[in-house]
Structure formats: C-alpha cells, structure tokens
Write a protein that binds this DNA or RNA. Structure first.
Lengths: 344, 344
DNA sequence: TTGAAAGCGATACCAA
DNA sequence: TTGGTATCGCTTTCAA
C-alpha cells in the first residue's frame, strides 16, 4: 500500500516498440496515426500498446514537439455565484470536445490571486488562457504579453482586450434597465450588489443604471454588501440595509437574480407586496426564475453560451483561423411582473 | 498579430545562467532555493531572472526530475447542481493553497466520459486524481491501478475505495430522512430526483429512504426526471408528474434543496399548503434555504468542507503522511417547517 | 560552492 | 516503409 511508487512499472514508448519489434519512431508514428507504415506494423504496434496498457507521456511529447500543451487556463472569480458556474461549464464542455483540458483558477475577485495563478499556469505551457474580467495586475500584463499565447477575456466587453474578448456591454445593460424602470414611473431607485468587484462588470452595470436613472430625473441609492459572493443571503441582507438607510426606495435593481430572490424573500417576510409596495429587478435570468410564480424582471444573458463562445474563439485561434477580437453575445431585458406595470 | 509565435522570445534557464555568468546548474539551484550557493551568486541569478522575466518550464522540470506534476485531476458530474459547484470550490481553493492546480473534468454523470477524461489527464502525469462517485468503467480501474498515483473518491462513502474516500453514507442519510418522516406520521411518500445517476449516491439515498419508509409501514412513489441536472425546474416538473400519477402522496423527499424549492413553488402555485396539504423535504441545506421564510426540512452537509477534506487527504498522501482510507464528513437532519409538526 | 555530462520520453529530420 | 540521431529545458549525479 505504502510503496513509493517507482516509475518502474510504467510502460513507455521504447517498451512498446521493443515488444512489437520495431523502432521507437515507427511505434510513435503508428500511435499518432501519422501514416507511412504498413498495415501489419500498425496492427502489431497497436496490439502491443493495448496489451501493455501503454499511456503516452504528453509531457514528453509537448516538450519534444516544441508545441504548447492542450491545457487552457481558465480563471473564474468564484463558484458560489451561479452565473460563473454556468460560464465555466460552457467553457469546459466545449474545450473538452476539442481535446483541451481546463486548468482552473479561482481568483476570489483578487488581482493578486490572479497574478499568482497566471504565473503558475504559464509555467505549464498552456495553449491559451481564458480570464474573467478585465482588470489584471501590471505584472500579469507583462507575463501575458510575454507568453505569446491566445488570451480570451470574458465577461465584460467594455475593455479594449489584451487579445480577444467575449461578453456583453454591462454599462449598456445597466442603462437599459435604468431606462426601463424610469419608464415604469420609478424615481427613487436602489441597487444592491456585492462590494468585491467595484472595478468590474457589476459596477459598470451600476454606472449605466445610475446614468439612465439620473437622465430620467431619478436617483439611485446603492448598497454594496461586504459578503464574498453574490448569492441569496447577501440579497436578503442588503435589502434590509438599504431600506433601513433610505425608506423611500420604490424599486431595487440587484446584481443578479440570486440576490434579487433574496430581496424578494425579504419583502415577502416584511409584508411588502411586490410589485405593489416594492419593485424588484434581477440580472442574469438564472435557473431559479423558471419556477417562480411571478416572472422576475431581469436581463437574460446566456452564460453557458458565453462560456462556449470563449472556448470557440480560443480553439479557432489555436487552429489559425481568423477570429474577431470582440464578440458580443448580447442580452435582452425581461419585463417580468416584479415591477409595476406600464401606466396607460 | 498573426505571427506564429516562435519560442524564440522565451527566456530559458540557459539564458538566465549565461546572463548571470554562472552555469545552468547553479542557476537551477538558486531558482529552486536548493541551497548550496553563495549569497552573491544567489543575488546575481535572481536579479537576472527577474530582469529577463524568466518563467520556468515546469513541463521540462517534471519530465527531467522523474517526479509527477503538481496537477490534480478533478472530475465533477456537472456544475448546474449547486452542490457540486461547492465541492469543486472547496477542492480548488485548498489545492491552490498548497501549490497544486486543478485540471477539471465534467463527466455529465457518464462513466464513458469519465474514462476518456481519465486517459487524457493521466497522460499529463498528474500528482493525483479526485473523482466524484464510485462507479468507474473497468478500463478506468485498470488505468488508475496502473498509474500508481493517489486517488480520492468523493461523495459516496459506501464504496470500498480504490484508494481513499471521503463523503457521507447516503444510504444512512436517506434512511434517517425516511424514519424522520414516518415519525411525523407520513405513510404515502414520494421521491423526486433525476434519473442520470441511478448507480450513484442519490439512488443510495433513495434506497435508504425506501427501506426506512417500508420498515415503518409506508410506501414510496418515485419520480425520476430525465432532466440533466438536479435543479429548480426538474423539481417543479417532477412534482407535477408525481402528483399526477399518484394523488395520494402526502410528502415528498427531493434529491436536493434546489429541486425541493421547485416542488415548493409548484405546491404554492397549485394552492397546496406546505406543510398542511403537502410535506416537503430537501437535501444539502443549500444557499437558498437561508432566505426562505419557512425553514426547509433538509439534511445539512458541508459540501465546501467535503471538497477541502478531499484536497487535504490528497495533499497529506502526497507528502507521505499517513492517511485514513475513509473519512466520513457527516450530516445532520434539519427538521424544518415544511413537514408537519410532531404530533403530541 | 560550482560545473560538466547524462538522460528523462517523445518527436523532427534526415538517411536508408 | 523504416530507423538512427539530435533535441526540447531541466534535474540528477558525480567530479572538481
């Protein structure tokens, strides 16, 4: 049980070749399906490889071939936020179907964490990197430039990308929601989100939202929870705090549907009718929305598709196909029934 | 832009050594902090490495050093199920803090997917593997045995592990829930889950549940949705189907809280009072439970901790420390208010 | 404290 | 259709 596993037992190319009575090179060609060998040789080599349970050492082949690996480093802020879990799922499935592997990095929204992870993952000669967000440390920039591999920044399209970018314009998205709510007659608006990504997409949404609201003669009271992930409870708690500090708020826009649902629960438990006494708008059109009686006012974004698109751009680039630097996957507003109806 | 990135620009150990005026070996020792060199040499080498932006090629060093890499392959069924997202988060954070990297594999609950992924990931000489579930294909077993690296199977403790295992006993867990509901006077019980992992933990839970219910003189009507992930909507829809085929059911046990919440919504929308007309029990004590007015009857399991425990076992084993083959992280039942109260 | 040489497992390139 | 040899970037081993 506790034997130091000697590599002794591992079968390598030489042993397969020897067993099959051919040279290493011939065995290598057969195993890669390179062509240029007889059927008979092929059969012999394949049989022996199978019989010996040969597994190629990709470390060696990448190393020898002067290629990069099939790894793709993927950085994600956190998985407690359903949105990012979906993005990751989209990325990994697509990458997997093209023979690539995801090397995961959870950065906790911290540029320093990301930098450390980038340093490490680059040392494994990845084929490319997919990074969430556009704020990277200066050293990260240096390393990425130096590495000379494809980089896809996802999530926020605002950035002039390092290399490639896919996502949506969060400012516009927030703006649309703001204008929509102004159109429904709201003037005293609230925003509830988390504080950790002030430099990121959620805050771009907030900026766009604020702009539209102010343009429409309204005002925005914001509440950023210190909580670490944008989930149900911070939404619940943030709503309580917001209403405590500004009782006049008529409608709240949340960082995502999970937080919005937390807010909805808060209202219900306090006897506030939605949308009668309080309007609620979420973001992301998450899974939970599909079972609620009242359609949640939200913004639909296909996070799975976003992830897939990122993986596709990466793969296209790696195959040398031309790839647009930016891809907007779009969004659309879901009017829903958690805000008051159009006034006729 | 489209330049085939030649490796030309990449700085390697030789160049650092040359710039510092020492041999490759000396540079190597300094950069690894191996000891056995003068302060002056150290300073020189470090300065040059920094200045040239040297990043070691870990592929080469693993290869040369005849060690395994710092990769740990982690297979997860899917990330649409919040439970697994939490597990993954726990694993990756803990692994990361010990200088290991997660290579992700989403298996979609399919043994064949898992087998393919295992084959690929093993070819990268990972330090170890963490696999969700205990059902692996025969070939997977062969490969794992042959690889001679630590393997942690998570999730289901029932298994006699390949190597190490961490999780809970799902049969016991289901049994406890069954006995609890029998104790609350229910006899016509339902189970709503997904059909994809009949060979896995959720079905062990169902078996335990059924046993306890039958022991108590009750019966279980089960409904397994074909849906691919155990989330809100399958819970909603599964409830509808279950009640359509057996209107006598008084209380439903769900595969997890997300599904249970879907069921709760179904009941509310059909005017069924919970727990007056229908009892509901979930599993996992997921994030959503924290904002519901009525405490959900559920089973608390710390998924984050489960992930961390798996990573800890892996790391301990890799450091040569003795590790117990099995670790039970436990669970406890949350009585909640979505089932009828104790009859006095 | 330092360095030279061998070699890890595979592939590229050239020769037969 | 096959095989020999150099090589990738680094570490191990041994000698200085």
């Amino acid at each position: 049980m506790d034997e130091k596993q000697g590599k002794t037992s591992k079968i390598n190319l030489s042993e397969v070749a020897r067993a099959a009575g051919v040279s290493k090179m011939t065995a290598s060609r057969v195993l890669r399906g390179d062509g240029g060998y007889s059927k008979k040789t092929e059969a012999k080599v394949m049989a022996k490889a199978d019989q010996l349970g040969y597994l190629p050492n990709r470390l060696a082949s990448v190393f020898a071939g002067d290629q990069n690996s099939t790894f793709v480093g993927v950085s994600i802020p956190d998985l407690g936020n359903e949105v990012f879990a979906q993005v990751l799922e989209g990325i990994d499935r697509k990458l997997g179907s093209f023979g690539h592997q995801t090397v995961l990095g959870l950065t906790q929204h911290a540029a320093q964490e990301e930098e450390n992870w980038i340093r490490t993952v680059l040392s494994w000669q990845p084929a490319g990197l997919i990074l969430t967000g556009r704020s990277h440390s200066p050293r990260s920039h240096d390393m990425l430039r130096n590495a000379g591999i494809p980089v896809v920044e996802i999530w926020d399209l605002n950035s002039s990308p390092l290399d490639m970018s896919v996502g949506i314009n969060h400012f516009d998205c927030g703006f649309d929601v703001g204008r929509f709510l102004i159109g429904r007659g709201y003037r005293a608006l609230g925003f509830v989100g988390t504080s950790h990504d002030t430099a990121n997409a959620a805050s771009a949404r907030l900026d766009g939202f604020t702009k539209a609201v102010q343009d429409g003669g309204g005002r925005v009271m914001k509440q950023l929870c210190l909580h670490d992930t944008a989930s149900y409870y911070p939404g619940f708690y943030g709503t309580e705090q917001l209403l405590a500090s500004d009782g006049a708020v008529e409608c709240i826009f949340y960082q995502n549907d999970s937080m919005a649902f937390g807010g909805l629960q808060y209202c219900e438990q306090k006897g506030l009718d939605v949308p009668g006494d309080m309007g609620i708008a979420g973001w992301g059109d998450l899974a939970i929305a599909s079972v609620l009686k009242k359609r949640m006012t939200s913004v639909h974004v296909s996070h799975l598709k976003l992830g897939q698109a990122a993986a596709e751009m990466m793969i296209a680039r790696l195959s040398g196909e031309p790839v647009a630097a930016c891809r907007d996957i779009g969004f659309h507003l879901i009017p829903g029934a958690t805000v008051r109806p159009v006034v006729l």
